[in-house]
Design a protein around this nucleic acid. Structure first.
Lengths: 243, 243
DNA sequence: CGAATGCTTGAAGCTTATCAAAGCTGGTGG
DNA sequence: CCACCAGCTTTGATAAGCTTCAAGCATTCG
């Protein structure tokens, strides 16, 4: 029970009552393992289930007829996949595993008791959605107005922060990137070739060091400066309904 | 009371009880007029108030030190500005008026009775946030993977649909665009010069006709095809708490 | 009527894409 | 444990799409 991903993640933002915790734990009753590259959800299908991501990384993406691909989101442990699609009749994107993963499926209706019984959890889920929204806006800015160099720095910082936050795979400032350069390119609106050239340049400039698919950020301050990075937005819990 | 923007907009998605309507109307008690280009909210400031947009268009945007600008969202009548920032301590973007506008300010805490008393309205607000989220993902895809030609078509369709939805300023398929070409460029990650050239090309190809800042879409089917446009995502209300 | 703002058009340049080939790496089977 | 293979990364050459700069034109507004 204590090892609930949701309780762990949401608890960091606001205190939860026992009842709240039980509501969350109920969402992680089932469990299913997925292999790397396995598809979780397909565009166009009806959404009947949501998933709590217990371990591993997922991504949602959109494919065009001619093969162009845009990665839209990265999901980390503790995230609800696709909470942000719950309100829609049909999925608009594909979701697949970047690494082997464990997901806890639950029916869409599983959220209803939560909305009905806990205004506080509701506010929290709402806030998480909003925070994600803010992250998307940051990426629009990056893709729309940043150079390739800035974009890659930005992504590395974003992922670094996120991993810090869930202190997974962290170790003296370095982390493992389970993304290929093609993935990075498709996240940032670039090509794999240019991502390669750009990362080499960033490394030569002494901002990062790479070893295999581990990345260490060497000059955090300069990178933050370079892409006007603000860190994760702070959640305001002051307006939340009381426990 | 019947002329509540929120009731009008939200009522299109789900039936509202009288009580729900009253909760919404309460948010539009005050009213303030803004001039074109007037700033509503500034990046970095604490967010104490939200606004119901009663008339006019707003945009939120982000500025970089060197003058680069990225427009992030467009707000139309009936939208809550910035609902999606309520969860954050500080605003991360500026918001200003694209046209003269009327806003109804209300304190952040004004949403509390709504969350506490109406699970149904809560679900609806949540869904609207999610839908907006989906729109943002579409724009990431457009900015990341579309050519300038596709991007402009995409934006025109999106705005056209949105205006249809609120049937404002509509007239035999044409609508007034209160955006300069620089605005369009900053929405789509282009330059004003190239937007001009691209729009001319789109017009020459017979997809649109322009007259001043009115735009008429001539070949809707081809434009939809061209940028894989899906229309507005459908909201699923089936999981909503009952009235 | 003049000033300001926005739109258009052309020329030149730069960032990034595309194409192609070779090097590397990690996983698999013998 | 080694050899192989598939997928990823690197590197170089070339090309395309978009930007930048600049000047002239159109429209709106005081």
């Amino acid at each position: 029970m204590v090892d609930s991903c949701l309780v762990a993640k949401l608890g960091r933002y606001a205190a939860l009552s026992e009842h709240d915790k039980q509501l969350l734990v109920a969402l992680e009753r089932d469990e299913r393992e997925y292999k790397k590259d396995e598809v979780v959800t397909q565009s166009g299908h009806r959404i009947n289930e949501l998933y709590v991501l217990k371990s591993g990384w997922l991504t949602s993406y959109s494919l065009l007829d001619d093969g162009r691909r845009q990665l839209l989101r990265l999901f980390y442990p503790g995230d609800i996949v696709d909470l942000a699609e719950i309100a829609l009749v049909r999925a608009r994107h594909d979701v697949k595993c970047l690494t082997p993963a464990v997901l806890c499926p639950f029916p869409k209706s599983g959220l209803e008791p939560l909305f009905a019984q806990s205004p506080r959890l509701t506010a929290l889920l709402f806030s998480m959605t909003v925070r994600e929204n803010s992250t998307l806006l940051d990426r629009i800015r990056a893709v729309g107005r940043f150079s390739a160099y800035e974009r890659v720095c930005y992504l590395l910082l974003e992922i670094g922060y996120r991993l810090n936050a869930i202190d997974d795979a962290k170790e003296d400032g370095g982390f493992r990137l389970p993304l290929t350069q093609s993935d990075i390119a498709d996240l940032l609106g670039l090509t794999n070739v240019y991502v390669s050239k750009t990362m080499s340049r960033i490394e030569q400039d002494g901002l990062i060091r790479r070893d295999g698919n581990r990345v260490r950020i060497l000059d955090h301050a300069r990178m933050v400066e370079l892409c006007d990075f603000n860190g994760e937005p702070l959640i305001d819990t002051s307006w939340f309904p009381v426990l």
